[in-house]
């Protein structure tokens, strides 16, 4: 494919400017001494300091950590088993494929209200635990997708050899498949963890109205809607840096699986 080099370069510069200027402005303003989101009054780290004294934010961060850790744990376990189960099947069941694919394409708001109705009508008390139950749904689908991608290039004769030599299925899973799959499983877990930390809509609907179960994205949302303070810039930057670091890590563990070939 031949296109004039100047044209492709211009397109890339413009697109990258569009993608990165808003984020960069945010990062820059988080160091703004005056704290105004607009007028630059000098470099300062003071809003970073004040963020760590804000009890609401700290509690929200703690809640988010719990939700993300617990839901990632279950999602990684269930998602990995699911991936292996689907790949060793000889028949491709269309229904199972749809079921696995669905959590990634169902719009958040639909899943969110469905879960809210479900939890309310079955008398679940809403709180962090209902957020965890809900997050596992989409997280396990993503873990499964990452692990399956690795299984497609897995040399199954190794697993067969293990079985022929008398290893039970669990031993084969644990001693043969797990070491090979480990990078993909870790990458999947990191992806799930990030998705859970960043997830807003489902948490917003399933956390209930108690202030004790507010997660970080919910805190950010209410800060944006009701009174923007200088701390929000700092929080936004920290959350962003956090996701980017975990995902870059995931990418390293599992070359290419997150951005395609």
């Amino acid at each position: 494919m031949k296109a004039p080099a100047s044209l492709t370069l211009t397109i890339l510069v413009l697109v990258f400017a569009f993608l990165y200027i808003p984020i960069s402005v945010l990062v820059g303003l988080s160091f703004n001494a005056g704290g105004m989101p607009t007028a630059w009054t000098g470099f300062s780290l003071k809003w970073y300091g004040s963020l760590f004294q804000n009890q609401d934010i700290l509690r929200a961060a703690w809640n988010t950590l719990i939700v993300a850790l617990v839901s990632t744990f279950f999602a990684t376990l269930l998602g990995t088993l699911l991936a292996i189960g689907v790949e060793i099947r000889r028949r491709r069941g269309r229904m199972i494929e749809t079921l696995i694919f669905a959590p990634m394409v169902i719009p958040d708001i639909v899943l969110a209200i469905a879960l809210l109705s479900f939890f309310s009508l079955t008398d679940f008390r809403l709180g962090l635990h209902t957020v965890i139950l809900s997050h596992v749904v989409f997280n396990l689908a993503f873990v499964c997708a990452v692990v399956r991608a690795r299984l497609r290039v897995f040399d199954w004769s190794v697993a067969e050899a293990s079985a022929d030599l008398g290893a039970s299925m669990l031993v084969t899973l644990w001693r043969v498949m797990l070491p090979v799959l480990a990078p993909a499983i870790i990458a999947g877990a990191l992806l799930a963890f990030t998705l859970s930390v960043d997830e807003f809509i489902i948490a917003f609907f399933t956390a209930g109205s108690s202030r004790a179960s507010i997660t970080l994205p919910m805190q950010i949302y209410s800060m944006i809607r009701f009174g923007i303070t200088p701390e929000i810039n700092v929080l936004a930057v920290l959350v962003m840096v956090f996701s980017l670091v975990t995902l870059t890590l995931a990418q390293r563990f599992n070359r290419g699986s997150l951005t395609g070939p």
Partner: peptide
């Protein structure tokens, strides 16, 4: 490609908030 996709992985609320600032 990686850098073109990277912003997609940052928090949706944060990316939206950036436009309020702009």
């Amino acid at each position: 490609l990686f850098f073109a996709i990277l912003p997609f992985w940052s928090n949706y609320l944060v990316r939206t908030y950036a436009w309020i600032v702009l």
